[in-house]
Amino acid sequence: MMPDILLHALLAGYGVALLAAPLGCFVVWRRMAYFGDTLSHSALLGVSLGLILDININLAVIACSLMVAAILVSFQEKQRMATDTLLGILAHSSLSIGLVAVSFADKIRVDLMSYLFGDLLATGLSDLYWIYAGGALVVVTLAWLWKPLLSMSVHAELAQVEGIPVRKLRLTLTLLMALVIAVAMKIVGVLLITSLMIIPAATAQRLSRTPEQMVVVSALLGILGVSKGLAASWYLDTPAAPSVVVASFLLFIITRLIKRT
C-alpha cells in the first residue's frame, strides 16, 4: 500500500499537470512564457500580503497576479518600453518586494523555500481540494471559450475584426493563469511553475497535428514527468519539484532526439 504522503503528492502533481497542460499550450502559442514567469514571481508578493493581512493566501495570490497584469497592460499601452524589459522588471521587483515584506512581518514564521521551490511531499487534503476545484473551473472555462481563444491565438486582429471580444478573452486567460499559479505554487513553487506549463507543451508541439491533440499529449507528458520526478525524489531523495522539471526536460530532449532520427 502506498503511503498517504506519496499518494497525496502524486494526486496533487497529476492535478497540476492536467491543468497546466491546456494553459501551457496557450502560453506557448501566444508567446507568453515571460508573462507566465512574471505572474508566478509576483505570486510571492501575494503570499506575503496574504500572510501580513491575514487573508486566504490563494486569494491574495490571485489578486496580486491580476494587479501585476493590470500594471503591465497599462505600461504596455503607453509603449515606452519593450515588453520583455518591462516583464523582467516586474517579475523580479515583485518577487523581491515579497521577500522583503515577509521579513518585516517577524511574528510570522514561514518557510519561504517551500514557496519558492514548492513542497510536493507536504501536500495536504486541502491543497488537493484547491487543485481539483480550481482545475475543474479552469477546464470548464477553457472548454467553453475554446474556439474564440484559439482564434485569438492564431491572429488577434483578425479575431477582433471578426467580432471576437479579444480584450475580455485576454483578461480571462490571465485570470486562469493566476488561478493555476495560486494552486500550483505550493506544489512546485513560484520559480518553477512556468516550466511545468511550457516544457510539456513544447514537447507535445512536434508530436501533434491539431491544437487539441497538443493539449492531450502535453497533459500526458506532464503526468509522466510528475511520476518520474516523484519517483526520483522518493527513492533517490532528490528535491521533488526540481526533479519533476528535470524529468520533463529529459522527456523533451528524448522526443527531440527520436524525431530527428
Binding site: S153, V154, H155, E157, V161, E162, P211, M214
Partner: peptide
C-alpha cells in the same frame, strides 16, 4: 467585415491545418 491582413504570421507553435483554421470562423 471580412478582413485580410497584410501578412499573417503563423507561429509554428500551433499545429493547425488549413481546414481547421477556416473552421475557427
Amino acid at each position: 467585415i471580412g478582413y485580410m491582413p497584410q501578412k499573417l504570421h503563423i507561429d509554428d507553435s500551433m499545429p493547425l491545418t488549413v481546414n481547421r483554421f477556416l473552421e475557427l470562423t
